[in-house]
Amino acid sequence: MEHLYWDLGPYAGGTCFEVTLRGSSANVCLLDAEEYQAYLDGDEYEYHGGFQEITPFVLEVPYDDHWYLVVDGNERRIKVTFTEID
């Protein structure tokens, strides 16, 4: 499973991130720790986000938890930047 990921750590619900993709469109997933483990195991998982062709875009953390940002795509073709925004 080819993907890029960042361990964002704990965040409160309502926190927003602006995400920019360069080089390719991709599926962008915001996953809590339990769902990220299911993703890694190849099990069913739920995520926030989706396929992104136009960037930048905003992802909002839906509830307090430990979060991971996952980008499914060719890691050699895509560059990802993200920042927490107010």
Rank of each mutant, 00 (worst) to 15 (best):
V71R: 01
Y68A: 00
A12D: 13
E2H: 09
E35L: 13
D65Y: 02
A26I: 04
T55I: 10
Y45L: 07
Y63C: 08
H3K: 11
I54K: 07
D41E: 13
R77D: 11
V28T: 11
G50R: 01
E60P: 08
Y39I: 03
Y5I: 00
N27H: 06
M1D: 15
D86H: 14
Q52C: 06
G73S: 09
C29Y: 07
S24H: 15
Y45G: 10
T55A: 15
E75A: 15
Y47N: 00
S24V: 10
N74K: 05
K79M: 04
F82V: 04
D7Q: 12
E2L: 10
D72G: 00
Q37E: 15
C16T: 14
L21F: 02
Y39F: 15
G14V: 09
P62R: 02
Q37V: 13
P62D: 01
G13Q: 08
C29K: 10
V71L: 08
H48S: 02
K79T: 11
R22Q: 03
P56D: 07
E75T: 15
G23L: 08
D86N: 15
A26W: 07
R76P: 02
N27A: 13
R76C: 04
S25Q: 14
E2K: 13
H48T: 02
D65N: 01
W6M: 11
C16H: 01
H3W: 12
V58Y: 03
L30M: 10
Y11E: 05
Y47H: 03
L4H: 06
R76S: 09
E75Q: 14
T83M: 07
G73L: 00
G50I: 03
G49K: 00
V19G: 00
Q52Y: 07
L69A: 03
Y47W: 05
L21T: 00
Y45S: 06
G50E: 13
G73D: 06
I85W: 02
E35V: 10
H48M: 05
A12E: 15
F82D: 05
Y47L: 12
Y5M: 02
L21Q: 02
E46L: 10
V28C: 07
E2T: 08
T55F: 01
V70K: 00
D65Q: 04
W67F: 01
H66Q: 09
G14H: 14
Q52A: 11
V71F: 09
I54M: 05
F57M: 03
R77Y: 05
L8W: 01
E53W: 03
T83V: 08
L21V: 00
F17C: 09
L69V: 03
R77E: 13
C29I: 08
D41Q: 12
Y63S: 13
E60W: 04
D41F: 06
T81Q: 01
Q37L: 13
E75G: 12
L4A: 04
S25I: 06
